[in-house]
């Protein structure tokens, strides 16, 4: 055996395990795409506070739910609605009684072009643009809320040929941020993290769409994992709530 290999083996066998604290566990979390930035900020705070580690997967709420239904190894589900966590409970995929609303989402109409509109409602009614982005209403709660806003304003039918659907709110944001769509319905939280031009923003009045109550739930796979239970508790802590509010969400 050559020397390098021996050193590598010795490292793997002898040293690596001693780096892992005895009680630290890892939790696998499925996080709705609108909460990407906030969850990235919360993760190190959680890891510092508890010593546990996180592994996070992102996607639209609908896509994550379908993965969970098919045995994905997620232990926590941070959805962008309440409906799918409830469904997970009903289907026996989640632990009953563990569900709570960790954030109330805010929908905005946004464009990277500064001064694209003064009156957003008139902008939507006139429809003088080629593409308007939203998340797929079937899988993404923010897309559903966008539908409700357009319905309320009576512009949905007229704008339908111009709608481009992102498969999650993250792709929708990217369509707008690259300028490929002139404007789009995205989450306020995404704007908070955006480092580019401020562009044009309309914070849509909350009564224009059904509340986006984002619920978290403990999945059956995480029932026995102390890290999963600790994360849910941490999500309700003042530290986490401060981060969540800073991203423009409401908290209960």
């Amino acid at each position: 055996m050559n020397r390098t290999l021996r050193i590598v083996l010795a490292t793997l066998i002898g040293i690596a395990p001693s780096h892992v604290p005895v009680k630290a566990e890892e939790v696998m979390i499925a996080v709705a795409a609108n909460f990407i930035d906030a969850s990235r900020e919360i993760a190190p705070l959680f890891e510092q506070a508890t010593g546990h580690r996180t592994r996070i997967s992102y996607g639209s709420t609908g896509k994550l739910y379908s993965q969970i239904e098919h045995g994905a190894p997620f232990e926590l589900f941070l959805a962008a609605d309440t409906q799918r966590p409830i469904k997970a409970e009903e289907e026996g995929l989640a632990v009953p009684g563990s569900r709570f609303v960790y954030a109330k989402g805010r929908l905005v109409l946004w464009s990277v072009k500064p001064g694209l509109f003064n009156n957003a409602e008139r902008f939507l009614k006139e429809g003088a643009f080629d593409h308007l982005a939203l998340a797929n209403p079937k899988t993404a709660p923010y897309g559903l809320a966008a539908h409700q806003v357009m319905n309320r304003l009576g512009v949905l039918d007229g704008l339908t040929p111009k709608l481009v659907r992102g498969e999650s709110i993250a792709q929708t944001f990217q369509f707008v941020a690259t300028g490929n769509a002139e404007a789009g319905f995205v989450a306020l939280a995404q704007i908070k993290e955006w480092a580019g031009e401020a562009g044009t923003l309309w914070e849509i009045p909350p009564h224009y769409y059904a509340p986006i109550d984002q619920a978290a739930v403990l999945l059956k796979k995480g029932e026995a994992n102390p890290a999963a239970i600790a994360y849910l508790a941490f999500l309700r802590s003042d530290t986490a709530r401060e981060v969540i509010e800073r991203y423009g969400y409401g908290v209960e």
Binding site: H131, A133, N136, P161, L163, V164, R165, G166, E167, Q171, F175, N180, A181
Partner: peptide, 8 residues
Amino acid sequence: VLMIGGNI
């Protein structure tokens, strides 16, 4: 297609 299509 998924990246540049927009699912129209």
